[in-house]
Computed example of a mutant assay.
Amino acid sequence: MTDMPPAILPPERFQQRLLAWFDAHGRHDLPWQQERNPYRVWVSEIMLQQTQVATVIPYFERFMARFPDVASLAAAGQDEVLHLWTGLGYYARGRNLHKAARVVVDEHGGEFPVHSLDEMAALPGIGRSTAGAIIAQSTGRRAVILDGNVKRVLTRLHAVEGWPGRPAVERRLWALAEHYTPDERLVDFTQAMMDLGATLCRRGSPDCGRCPFEAVCVAHARGEEKRFPESKPRKALPTRTTVMLLLQDGEGRVLLEQRPSSGLWGGLWSLPQFDDAEALQAWLDARAPGSELEPAWTPFIHVFSHFRLEITPQPARIGRLDAVDEARCWYDPSDPPSIGLAAPVKALLASLAPFALTTTAGP
C-alpha cells in the first residue's frame, strides 16, 4: 500500500516550499501590488471576491483613476460609484465599499484601522479573511487569510471532507491556515496562497504537475483532486418572472427608476418592473396615459446565485407622463449619464437606437 502523506506538514516546510514557488512563479506585477497601501489593497480585495483577476484589473485601474484615496471615494455619490462598478456584479460589494469609505473617514479619521483585526472586520463588506488580507498585504503584520483559493488548497492538501461552508469544516480550515501562516514575509505568503489556488490548484482543472505540494497532497495521492472541496448541497433554483418597461419618448430617451437601497440591484437604476403585463398596463394607464405598446420582445433569463429571473422586455411609446421625481430619470442612450445600471438593463439600453425601437426582436 502506498504511504499516505502526513496529516499535517511542519509549518516551516510548508512555508519554504510555497515561498520558493512564489518567488519563481508567483504574480508580482498586479496593479494593486504597486504603491501598496491599505486603501488600494482593500479595493482590490473587495473587487476580487468571486471575480477573476483578469476581469478586475481594468475596473481597479478605472476606479483608482477616479477615486485615488478613501476621502475621494467617501465624498462621491453612490450613483457614480455604482456606475464604475457596473459589470462587476454582486453590487452589494460596491455599496458596501462606499459605506465603508464613509465609515473610515467619519469614524477613523480617514485611516484604515489596520492595527485591529476586529475593527477592520467590522467595516461594511469586510469579514475576517478580507480583514486579514488587507492587514497582511498592506502592513506586513501577521494576519491569517482563508478566501476561496486558500480553502481549496488546504482542503485538497488534507482531503478535508465536507462542504467548506459548514461551520465545523470551516473551523478545521481556519486551524490549518493558522498553523501554516508564518511570522515573516506575510505580504508574499498571503499573495502566494492566493496565487497557488488561482493559477495551479484551480477548481475544475488543477495543474498538479507544477504544484510544489504534489508529493504531499492527500487528494492528489488518492487521485481525487476534483472531489475536493465538496460542493454546497444544491437546490433547484426557482424561477421568477418580471416584465421590464422600455418606455421611450419622442427624443429616444428611456425612463429609468432607481431601485431601493436594499434588495435586488439595490441602489442601481433599472427599467420599471412589473409582475405581469396587466400590472404594467395599469401603471401606464395611471402614470402615462395614451402610451402605445409595441410587441413584446423575446423573454430571456438572468441567473442570480439563488434564483433565475425571466425578463420580458416590453417596449412602448409614451403619450404623456406625470412629473418625473428624484427616483426616476430619462436616460439618453446616445449620451448616457454616469449612473449604476443593472447588467441586463445595461444590455437592453445598449441595444436601443435613439428615436427608434425595433418591434420584431429582442436583444
Rank of each mutant, 00 (worst) to 15 (best):
V81D: 08
L154W: 11
R142L: 04
Q273P: 14
V43C: 07
K99M: 05
D183R: 02
A136S: 15
H179I: 06
P229R: 01
G197A: 06
D188I: 03
K235M: 03
Q50D: 09
F67A: 06
M64N: 03
P238C: 04
A286R: 14
H302F: 12
P164F: 02
Q137K: 12
P167M: 00
V303E: 12
R253F: 02
A136C: 12
F67Q: 00
Y180F: 08
T358S: 09
A350Q: 15
G140V: 07
D188E: 14
R128G: 12
P31D: 08
A133I: 07
Y59V: 07
I126H: 00
P233E: 07
V153Y: 03
A219I: 01
V150N: 03
F213Q: 07
W265F: 14
T139Q: 05
K235Q: 13
H158P: 11
D147R: 00
G250Y: 00
L309W: 03
S205F: 00
A198M: 06
E294I: 08
Q314P: 11
A350D: 15
A347E: 10
T199S: 09
M120Y: 05
R234K: 14
S262F: 01
A143N: 04
S334R: 10
R308G: 06
H302D: 11
A159K: 09
K235P: 12
A131G: 15
T155P: 01
H306T: 15
L73Y: 11
T130D: 00
G362A: 07
D23A: 09
F112M: 10
L348K: 05
I135G: 00
G127F: 00
L97M: 14
M47P: 13
V43Y: 02
K99Q: 13
L321I: 15
P295C: 06
E107P: 14
F67Y: 15
G94K: 01
P333W: 05
A327M: 05
P337Y: 02
C329W: 03
V324E: 00
Q78K: 10
W330M: 03
L352G: 06
G267C: 04
A92N: 10
A7L: 10
A122L: 02
P337F: 02
D188A: 09
V114R: 05
P315Y: 06
V153G: 05
A192F: 02
S44C: 04
L352C: 11
P337K: 03
E170M: 07
G204E: 07
L73T: 15
A347K: 14
A54E: 14
D275W: 02
G148H: 04
E225Y: 01
A353L: 09
G266H: 09
P212F: 02
T199D: 08
R128N: 10
Q78T: 10
R166C: 04
K99D: 10
Q137F: 13
V104Y: 00
L9A: 08
G319Y: 04
W32C: 08
A159D: 10
M194T: 13
R36S: 00
T181I: 03
H306Q: 10
R222H: 12
